[in-house]
Design a protein around this nucleic acid. Structure first.
Lengths: 262, 262
DNA sequence: AAGTGGTCTAGACCACGAC
DNA sequence: TCGTGGTCTAGACCACTTA
């Protein structure tokens, strides 16, 4: 095995209070930040790092797990540890639910996917009647039964978003909204055809680390948070007609909004 | 040492493919989710878990580090590992920059703090002239020098947000905006007095894991992401008059927006 | 077969906090 | 003082990838 290219990584400071594994993590992080390891590059193997620093394997693994937690690197069993590439980001514009998009027969996700020139797919579509959670029921103005539309969105084959739409059952039952394919313009276009002209949407955004199940569904690398977005759609009479509960891979999205100054 | 209360945690499945430390993490997670350990409760000590499961210490520590990464628990040296309490969340409303708030002499942060009945402080205020980064310069329409206002916000003594406002220097120099205390209503009130009537704000939101420096500044527990918000303020002539780059502790915020349906 | 990371053991010494 | 978590060692065996 060839020795580590000199200069890429420095030496430890034994006089420092800082733990050895943190010093090693610091040096690797700095090398990545400065581009000495580029996106997609393989870091030195554990064996190489052990020899370079003269420490035990667990110390090296500890260092690398720090960087994994920061979302900087991802390890691949049998291959190595790699600098995580920044995936292409989808920017959700504040006009993404504008009527003019619906009138062109496009769903919001399609509009966004086209904006980045990507290929979009929908997946795992399940439509069924449910008893809503307390939170969803409240947001829907006290609905006792709802129609739930679950689906996963993929961009260029990568799952990026998982969403559940809830609609009051009395409103959606026996309409095309209850069909797997809601038709051109999506369920918002159907709601308007049913006489529920949409007035505005409220969105609430938070971020957190994913649960193991969410990691599986969105195939998340470690160190990638999720953005949780809950949108409520209101018609012109002020009635909430849909709640959409969305979980997004945070490394795949930027959300954009416009606020009035008045 | 008393034995672990029976029933709280189960046994390992040696026939399972799932790694032992993951099985232990699963059981602890389930116990937390089901409320068998409540917020703020202490988990069994490493020694207790070692005896309960009959595994080595590193295996137990590995399990706990999984839960730390998920933001479920936080360890305190010398005391134990505790279920992380959900801190009070500040909800940023979509009207938080409405003129009516400014006209009451209140800053946006004060308005929000009062809404949750908390005590707010500002900290580490530094105002100085700078050469902006490429990104900031572009957002400001090509400004070559800017006034930068850095500050940290604390809610009930806990740092929750770090923000930097950038203003074109030709606009802010020798005004009260360049003073540490910008006066009632904050810099947006001053901008309007200077003839820059505000029209709207653009906000861009993303989420990621914090850098070590950000962890220090916001005193973040492990497993807590940050929300990155970049706001650009435009006057009625369409000129960008301020860019505010904000980093928020994700466990302390919910952002709310309203979208038009038109 | 050789190299990589994944899991696990059985110790050691240290630093912090509560009593 | 004692129990807690923090750091570190020196091994072992396994699973995956590449050649």
């Amino acid at each position: 095995m060839p020795p580590l290219s000199s200069g890429l990584l420095g030496a430890l400071d034994s006089t420092s209070d800082r733990a050895v594994f943190r010093q090693i993590a610091d040096q690797l992080r700095e090398a990545i930040d400065k581009g000495r390891f580029a996106e997609g590059d393989k870091l030195p193997s554990e064996t190489e790092l052990i020899e370079h620093y003269g420490v035990s394997r667990m110390t090296i693994r500890n260092s690398i797990s720090v960087l994994q937690g920061e979302g900087l690197v991802a390890s691949e069993h049998g291959k190595g540890v790699f600098v995580r590439p920044r995936p292409p980001v989808r920017r959700l514009a504040s006009d993404r639910f504008a009527r003019r998009h619906r009138e062109q027969g496009k769903s919001a996700f399609t509009v966004e996917a086209e904006a980045v020139g990507g290929h979009s797919e929908v997946d795992s579509l399940v439509v069924r009647e449910e008893k809503p959670s307390q939170d969803i029921a409240t947001r829907l103005g006290g609905a006792r039964k709802v129609l739930a539309r679950r689906r996963r969105y993929l961009l260029d084959g990568r799952p990026v978003e998982f969403a559940v739409s809830y609609l009051p059952l009395d409103l959606a039952r026996n309409t095309q909204i209850a069909e797997p394919n809601p038709g051109p313009g999506g369920i918002y276009a159907r709601l308007e055809e049913l006489g529920h002209r949409l007035d505005h949407f409220d969105e609430e955004i938070s971020a957190r680390m994913p649960t193991p199940e969410e990691i599986k569904t969105l195939r998340l690398a470690s160190g990638v948070p999720v953005i949780h977005l809950i949108r409520t759609a209101y018609d012109t009479e002020g009635r909430p007609v849909e709640v959409c509960d969305t979980l997004m891979a945070a490394d795949a999205y930027v959300l954009a909004y416009q606020l009035p100054a008045t």
